[in-house]
Amino acid sequence: MPLVVLAGIVLAALPFLGGSQYLATIGLLTAASALVGQGWNLAGGFGGLTSFGSVMFFGIGAYTAAIIQTRWGINPWFGLPAGAALGGLAGAVVGFAAFRAGLRGSYFALVTLAFAEVFHVLSNSLALTGAGLGITLRLAPGLGNFQFLDRRASYAVMLALLVLATALAHWLRASRFGARLVALRENEDAAQALGIDIVRTKTLAFALSGAVIATAGVVYTQTYLYIDPSIAFSVERSVEMLLVAMIGGPGTVWGPILGAIGLHLVADTAQAWIALPGFAAMLYGVVLLAVIRLLPDGIAGMFRRA
């Protein structure tokens, strides 16, 4: 395992060495996938709360960052805590409503999908979010403005957030809260009989997941300086989060990182060879099928068995 960690550190540091913007962009995209995957994993992996709509948190984070600076002139760095707070709040509200009603499995997945669509429609029609036009940030590079011309800086921010999210997953695995969440995933009746508050535990987990995923949205806005409804609330991003966690190993600490690397290796390589529109989405489906069939515990499961 120390060898794997060492390899990870070298891999993570690679884009900083040399001045390649291309390498930094790949690093940024992979770290972003790993971050949203880890966010999804906190609830979906550890708690079995399979959400199909977690892109709503990404979008909320992205719009929070855009709105506070363009509409209210607040410093963009404040977008990170504000985005995380609103993402967490959305997770708590949606989670509480769904879990209170006793929704599980595919019913929960569909309700999250519906909520993501509600946010999509709202952002498409409200003046606050710039409706269909979206919001463009004024170009003003600088550390104080949370805008960087060098992709390596964006990558560094994303990487720092990924480290935090992974530390959170690590805490979850070791803590009472995490153990209770896993118990709920394994057997709800037994967990409740042993004194676990189902709604409270699941709601907290979903809120935590929302807060983490929202931070990725904030960094997205600060990197591309533009956000619109179809970018913020795309179903593909929901699928990507789920896929990253499933491929890497749901309910494990390192799974989403392994999953993100694996997915980007496959997807980016394939895209370079075959430039068909929609090919990536098709490939995702094939990869997911293969993983479920061959690696039910993901890439991380392979290491555990070895």
Partner: peptide, 27 residues
């Protein structure tokens, strides 16, 4: 439960620990 309801993916000790967590917070 009459039909036993183990947390299948957890070890025996981890199963029992879920019960212990009701009054002992420290893992």
């Amino acid at each position: 439960f009459q039909i036993t309801q183990p947390f299948g993916g957890l070890s025996v000790a981890e199963n029992i620990r879920i019960g212990a967590f009701l009054h002992v917070a420290e893992p």
